[in-house]
Simulated scan of single mutants.
Amino acid sequence: MATLVKSFAIQGIDAYPVDIETKTMEGQPMISIISLAPSDKKKCGSHFDLAMAVGVLKQADLIDAKNILQYGLIGELSLDGRLRPSRGILPMIIAAKKHGYKSVIVPRENMVEARLVQGIQILGFETLLDVLRYLEGKKTYGSTVPEEENAIWQENLLDFADVKGQDELIDAVTLSAAGGHNMLMIGEPGCGKTMIAQRIPTILPQMTEEECLEVTKIYSISGLLPNGHALMKQRPFRAPHHNASLNALIGGGVNAMPGEVSLAHNGVLFLDELAEFSRRTLDALRQPVEDKKVSISRVNGTHTFPSNFMFVAAMNERTTKLIQA
């Protein structure tokens, strides 16, 4: 009889449950791929390590773990048995709660992020041995939540008080921010276009709890959420270089990761030296700007990422004159 262990997989910015099935059979020594159901969806990630290890040990009768189906297991394993933090924890915990899970075991370093989701028990461990002892009932769980002081991701806040002059431009920026309009700034190099653009998120309305969770999910999946930090409450500001590839800007790659347009979701996307970006890249921005989302098609499926941002661009006045000429 096969052993069943529960885990999760990421698709887009959301997650879904995965059944991990293991079976040992007599015969020539060999290792076959463990069954990850549903099998019609391509899966990737090192966070399956913990669930696979528990499944193999249980199937081989090397542990006496009871009621393992009550737990969702997430975590990457190092060769010495330590649990390493995984990306995409937040959407996986949200999926666990949605599908009725009562408890989820995660690496200790992911606990602050995981506990953003209320109404589900989060158990954090540092090693595989600790997890096995707990599942066997040989060890009671003692909460080891990291300090909460750094639970909210805080960055150095910028302020428009640093800007001297440019009153007309600041008025235009204020109107654009108030109405959620996109804008293009044209001026001489060094006149403060970038400095002003960096401060636009500070005058936008505070994000709602739903917006905070949505942004945090995107950064969690992208691996850009620092360990020990959790909820992002400040609107993001992204300023990709004009040499950025199309996949880096729009999203994509082998595993279809979010691009800059999604990392700027609910915040500001700033393109400096707009004329230096390739026409192909600028054309690709049409769908995200108009539809507030971007769809990326790959062999293993189509992924949709949100991209509702304020689009701010800047050009040098000299470049504008050359284009007009």
Rank of each mutant, 00 (worst) to 15 (best):
G75W: 00
S103T: 04
S307Y: 02
Q121E: 15
V131M: 14
L73C: 13
V261E: 08
K66S: 12
C44K: 15
I250D: 03
G119C: 11
V215P: 01
N255W: 12
L224P: 00
F48L: 00
L83V: 12
D19T: 05
I93T: 03
I323V: 07
E276C: 06
C212D: 02
V5W: 00
Q166Y: 13
V268C: 00
M183R: 07
N247G: 14
P189I: 05
F8Y: 15
L77D: 02
P91A: 10
A161H: 08
I31E: 08
M30A: 14
E126V: 12
Q234M: 11
Q118T: 15
A37E: 02
T320A: 09
K292Q: 11
L184P: 07
G267I: 00
N182G: 12
E317S: 15
R279A: 14
S78V: 08
C44L: 10
A239I: 00
R298F: 02
Q59R: 07
M183L: 15
N243E: 09
C191A: 08
P91S: 12
N227I: 05
G119K: 04
G252P: 09
L231S: 01
N150W: 05
T202I: 06
N247H: 09
V106S: 02
E260T: 02
G12L: 03
M30S: 12
M315P: 01
T22L: 04
I31K: 09
G165P: 12
G259A: 11
D64E: 12
K42F: 07
L263Y: 00
V54R: 00
L213T: 13
S222C: 03
E26F: 11
G228T: 02
P288S: 11
R279F: 10
P201I: 01
T281E: 08
L123I: 11
E273Q: 06
E188L: 07
K42L: 10
S78L: 03
E147T: 06
G165Y: 08
P107N: 07
G72Q: 09
A37H: 03
E168R: 12
E147I: 03
Q28H: 13
